[in-house]
Simulated scan of single mutants.
Amino acid sequence: MTEIIDGNAVAGQIRAELTGAIETLTDAGSQPGLATVLMGDDPASQTYVNMKQRDCEEVGIDGVHVEIDGGASAETLYETIADLNDDPDVHGYLVQSPVPDHIDYREVIRRIDPAKDVDGFHPENVGRLVAGDARFRPCTPHGVQKLLEATGVETEGADVTVVGRSDIVGKPLANLLIQKADDGNATVTVCHSRTEDLATKTRAADIVVAACGVPELIDGSMIGEGAVVVDVGVNRVDADTEKGYELVGDVEFESAKEVASAITPVPGGVGPMTRAMLLYNTVAAASAQTGVDVDLP
Rank of each mutant, 00 (worst) to 15 (best):
T202P: 00
V237T: 13
M273W: 12
A256Q: 12
A199V: 01
A286E: 13
G213W: 01
V292S: 02
D219Q: 09
M277S: 06
H192L: 03
V283W: 01
A227D: 09
L278K: 15
T195I: 00
T290K: 07
D206F: 00
I263M: 09
D231Y: 08
P265H: 06
M222Y: 04
G249S: 11
Y280C: 08
E258C: 12
T200H: 02
I263D: 09
M273H: 13
A227I: 04
I218D: 09
E216P: 01
D219R: 07
A260D: 13
C212D: 02
A199M: 04
G220P: 08
G224C: 15
N235C: 10
A227K: 05
M222S: 06
A205G: 04
N281L: 13
Y280Q: 11
Y280I: 06
D231I: 06
L278M: 15
L278A: 12
A285H: 03
A256D: 12
E216Q: 14
V229H: 10
V234N: 08
E258I: 07
G269I: 04
S261E: 11
T202H: 02
D250N: 04
A288M: 05
V209A: 13
A210E: 11
P267V: 03
L217T: 01
G271P: 15
L198F: 00
G224R: 13
L279I: 13
P272L: 08
P272K: 08
S221F: 05
N281I: 10
T264W: 10
S193Q: 05
R236I: 03
L217M: 14
A205R: 01
V259H: 14
A256V: 14
T195Q: 01
G224W: 11
A262D: 04
V259Y: 12
S255A: 15
K243V: 05
L247T: 05
G226R: 12
A284F: 02
P267Q: 09
C191D: 07
P215Y: 07
V266Y: 12
P215H: 06
V190N: 05
V208H: 00
D250M: 02
A199Y: 01
V237I: 15
L279N: 12
A288V: 00
V232L: 14
S193C: 03
S261D: 12
D238Y: 11
S261T: 03
G244C: 07
E242K: 08
V232I: 14
S193Y: 04
Y280G: 06
A284Y: 02
I207T: 03
V259L: 12
T290A: 06
S221G: 09
G269R: 10
A239P: 04
A227Y: 02
V270L: 12
G291H: 04
R236P: 02
A256G: 11
G233A: 08
T264V: 06
V237G: 13
V230P: 03
A285W: 01
G249W: 13
A204C: 05
E246W: 06
D197V: 01
V228F: 04
E225N: 11
G233N: 08
G271H: 11
R194E: 10
E196G: 03
Q289I: 00
A286I: 06
G226F: 09
V208W: 04
M277A: 08
G224T: 15
D240A: 14
C212K: 03
T241K: 15
A262G: 05
G269N: 11
R203A: 07
M222R: 06
